[in-house]
Design a binder for these strands. Structure first.
Lengths: 97, 97
DNA sequence: AATAAGTGTAACCCGTCAGGTTACATTTTT
DNA sequence: AAAAATGTAACCTGACGGGTTACACTTATT
């Protein structure tokens, strides 16, 4: 499988650069729109929090995207970090078919 | 966005029907191969546990698949259930562009 | 029939994380 | 200068991943 050297973009970065900034939306403002706490949204935007399925649904509604867009970004991010966190999985032998 | 009426297949179901049974692999057996506890694997197979990024890496190694295969199944499953769990997100208004 | 293997799951432990509220100090706008 | 926005700490609750041990039940296997 392909292993990137650089970490995949965190969904918070996309949210910030492609939505908040172009639309002049503040975190406080958007948090109200999304119906989540300012803290929760801030954590996501600053890449200290994850886009959960529930959050993905909210972002999708707010920005007319699919929830999968956000979840895929998060998934790639999580997968990359999981593959670095430990190396145990690398030693697993393929089941003979 | 598309809303399925029936819940997406849990990755555990795929694992069971497409890998364990055809290969006559037991849960105990595979759990050793994957390097996880029998309990953890049993929960996944019986759809009472999730495929985490770490587990996805293990399954991918064992069965020569991509980790994304397993994570996407889990993602679809989680998203479907999240969309049913509450309806708050449905009331969110799209940000005017 | 008897033994062995596989299984589901409960009880218990631990650590992590989502998400909320409140509060404070700092930065950015207006 | 005054107002708004922000990052983040402290604290709480609830959920969940993952591990071990143990028990009862089912399925093979001998």
């Amino acid at each position: 499988m392909r292993i990137r050297k650089r970490p995949p973009t965190h969904p918070g970065g996309i949210l910030k650069r492609h939505y908040l900034e172009p639309l002049s939306l503040t975190i406080s403002n958007l948090s109200v729109n999304l119906g989540v706490s300012r803290k929760t949204l801030s954590k996501v935007v600053n890449e200290h929090g994850s886009v959960t399925p529930n959050m993905a649904l909210r972002l999708a509604k707010a920005f007319n995207t699919t929830p999968e867009l956000w979840l895929n970004l998060q998934q790639n991010y999580d997968l990359w970090h999981a593959s670095r966190k430990s190396n145990d999985w690398k030693k697993i032998e393929a089941i003979a078919v």
